[in-house]
Design a binder for these strands. Structure first.
Lengths: 342, 342
DNA sequence: TTTGAAAAGGTAAACGTTTACCTAAAAAGA
DNA sequence: TCTTTTTAGGTAAACGTTTACCTTTTCAAA
C-alpha cells in the first residue's frame, strides 16, 4: 500500500473524496469545525491509503514557518558540541523542529554566507556559535532587530547589543579548578591556556587568576603556557613546564590539553596524582576513560543545548527575549561523580 | 544598508527596475541571454542595495530541489559520526548542499516518521544509518524504487534489495587486529564483542574468527565476552576475562570497550603492552590520548563521509547507482601512524 | 411557520519563485 | 527597401499549500 515519496497532493485527495482542497486541509490539520465526522473519516482514510504526506515547502511558503533551526558551529569536532547537539535536538524534536547543521570552519565569510542564505525562508531561527575572536555580529544584530530569532552561543563581543546569548561557565571553571586544588593542599598551580585568540579561553584564564587571588596565592607567569585547545599543544606545553618545575598541580583549559599534559607527565615517569595533580576543563568522556581518571569541570553541554532550545523556541513563538545572557553553571566531576561547589 | 532578513522579493526588484519578474529571475540566476548588460547591472545593483536574498522555499516549490540532505543516525554520540559528518558536510558544501541532522535514537518508529516527513519536498536525498538489528528497509526500498535518492550506511539487512549502501571494513578490522597481534607473537587472543543485536558487531567478530583461522589458531569461547560498545561494559567484560586468564592479548570491538578494558587491566597492576597487548577497533582520538597509546583500527570515517557524499550527489543528479556496496578499507594505526596491511 | 444561528463546505487569492511561450524592437542580410 | 534573425523582455501558469471570506444546508427556538 501507501506510495510513500509519491506525488500525491491535497488536490488528489480533494477530487478523490469529492470535496475541496480547503476541506482536506482542514481535516488534515485537525482544525476545529468545518466538516462532518463522516467526511473526516473518508479523507483520513484516503490520505492513509495513498500515503499522503504534505509538501513542507508549499506549506512553509504560506505559513512562513519551516520547523527548521540552523545551528552554526566553528568545528564539529569539539566534543562539547556532541552533547550540545543531543540536548538541543531532543528538545527541538518535541516541537517537531529539526536541526540544520552548518560548519563554519571558523571562517567569518562562510558564516555570513550561511546566514544570509538560510535566513530568508529556510529556517525559523538560527543559533550561532564561534571560537573566533573576530566576531562579526552586525549581521546578527540586524536580523535580531528585524525580530528574526537569533541566539548566540559562546559569543563575547563588545557589540552583542540586544542579542540573546547563552554562555558556559568559563570563569567559574577556572576558579573552581583552583579552589579544588587548593583544598587538596596545592599552593603552586600551573595553567595551560587555550587558543590565543579565543575569548572563552581568556575567560577561563581570568577565572584561574581570580581563583588564585581568592585563595591568597600569587600568580606566576612562569608556570602558565598556551595550549591551543589541542592534545599536541597540551603535551608540548606540559613538557616545557616540566623542565622548569615549580608547581605541584596543573589545570588544562580543556580536556584535550589536559590529556596531552598527562601524556607528558607520565612519559617522565611522574605519577598522577601522586607527583602532580591534574584538573581539566570542559569535561568529556576523555578524562573518564583515562587511567587514572582525571578530575574535570563539566560545562553541562547537554543542558546548554536544552537552554538554547528553550530560548530559540520562545523567540520563534513570538516572545521577545531581548538582551539576556544565560550562563550555565559549571560542575566539577571527580571519578564520575559530581562534586558540590568547591 | 542592506536590510537582510527583510522581505524584499523579486517583485520589489522588478517594479523598482521597471522590468518583469522574469527578467529579474534571469539576471539573478545568470541565465544566458534575455537581457542587456545595462539592465543586468541595474538589477544587480538594486539587489545588492536592498540585500535581496531569494526565498529558498518558493524556489524549491518550482524547481523541486531544496539543496538539503537529511542524515539519520541512531545516536549522535558515537565518535564515528563526528568524523563522518565532517567529511560529508565538507563534501556537500562544495555543491551548496546542507545537512539536516536527525537523531533516531535507534527507534524504528522515529526513523519512519522522520523519513516520511522529510522526503516529501523537504530534502533532495536521505542517508540512513543504524545500529539496530531490527532494520525496517521496506520504506527505504519503496523510496528507492521511486528514484528518490537513498543511501544506507552500515545496514546489513537481507532485504537491502537495490539500495545503494556504504559500509565500513568491519570484517577487515577483526581480521587485521588478529594478524597484528599474531605478528607480535601472540597466540591466545581474547575478544570483547560489541552490542548483542548489532550486525556490524557480529561482523567484527566474524573477522576475528577468520583472522584466527588464517593464523592457524583455535577459537576459544572462554576468552570472548560481550561489551555493548560502552566503556563500562568493556571494563566489566575485561574484569571477567582477567579472572580466568588464558590469553596474552585482547581486542575490543570499539574504542570505548577497549579503553574500558585498559582501565580494568591497569587497575590490576598489569602493564600494557608488557603484560597484555591491546588493540581497538573504530579508531577515535581516545586511543591516541591514552597513556600508553593504544593500537586501533581506523574505519576512516571522514573518507566514508566523502564517499557517502559522492553517492548521494550522483543520485541527486539523476544517476542511478542501483545496488552497489561501497566498503571502506580499514587501516591500522600504531602511535599515530598508519601501518600498511598486516 | 418563520427566524436565525450553527454546521458543512466551497472559492479563490496568496505565498515567491521559475519557465514555457509569446511579442516587439533592433540588427543583419539580401 | 524588404525580409529574416537575433536580442530584449513580457505574460502568465505552475508549484502545493493555507486561509479569509463566502454560500448553502440543517436544525432548534420562538
Amino acid at each position: 500500500m501507501a506510495k510513500t515519496g509519491s506525488r500525491v497532493t491535497i488536490k488528489d485527495l480533494a477530487s478523490m473524496c469529492d470535496v475541496s482542497t480547503a476541506t482536506v486541509s482542514r481535516v488534515l490539520n485537525h482544525i476545529q469545525g468545518g466538516y462532518s465526522g463522516e467526511t473526516e473519516a473518508r479523507i483520513l482514510k484516503a490520505a492513509e491509503e495513498l500515503g499522503y504526506a504534505p509538501n513542507l515547502m508549499a506549506r512553509s511558503l504560506v505559513t512562513k514557518k519551516t520547523n527548521l533551526v540552523a545551528v552554526l558551529v566553528p568545528d564539529i569536532h569539539y566534543y562539547f558540541f556532541q552533547e550540545f547537539f543531543a540536548g538541543l535536538e531532543a528538545y527541538l524534536n518535541k516541537f517537531s523542529y529539526r536541526l540544520l547543521l552548518c560548519n563554519t570552519q571558523e571562517d567569518p565569510r562562510q558564516e555570513e554566507q550561511f546566514i544570509r542564505s538560510l535566513c530568508n525562508g529556510l529556517v525559523d531561527g538560527i543559533i550561532v556559535s564561534t571560537l573566533n575572536s573576530r566576531e562579526e555580529n552586525e549581521l546578527l544584530i540586524e536580523l535580531n532587530e528585524e525580530h528574526f530569532p537569533v541566539i548566540t552561543l559562546e559569543r563575547y563581543g563588545e557589540e552583542l547589543r540586544d542579542l540573546c546569548s547563552v554562555q558556559v561557565g568559563n570563569f567559574d571553571a577556572g576558579r573552581m579548578a583552583v579552589n579544588y586544588l587548593y583544598s587538596k593542599g596545592h599552593r603552586k598551580i600551573a595553567f595551560i591556556r587555550g587558543k590565543r585568540d579565543a575569548r572563552n579561553a581568556d575567560i577561563r584564564y581570568e577565572g584561574y587568576l581570580a581563583g588564585l587571588e581568592a585563595c591568597g596565592l600569587q600568580p606566576d607567569e612562569s608556570i602558565v603556557r598556551y595550549g591551543d585547545y589541542t592534545f599536541e599543544a597540551g603535551r608540548q606545553a606540559m613538557s616545557e613546564l616540566l623542565e622548569n618545575g615549580g608547581f605541584t598541580a596543573v589545570i588544562g583549559a580543556n580536556d584535550l590539553i589536559t590529556l596531552g599534559a598527562c601524556k607528558a607527565i607520565m612519559k617522565t615517569g611522574r605519577r598522577i596524582p601522586a607527583d602532580i595533580s591534574v584538573v581539566g576543563i570542559d569535561k568529556t568522556i576523555l578524562t573518564d576513560t583515562h587511567e587514572p581518571t582525571i578530575v574535570s569541570i563539566d560545562f553541562c553541554a547537554h543542558q546548554v543545548g536544552i537552554t538554547v532550545g528553550e530560548c530559540i523556541m520562545s523567540m520563534i513563538n513570538g516572545e521577545s527575549l531581548g538582551k539576556r545572557i544565560f550562563r550555565q553553571r559549571s560542575v566539577l566531576f571527580e571519578d564520575g561523580k559530581s562534586v558540590r561547589e568547591v
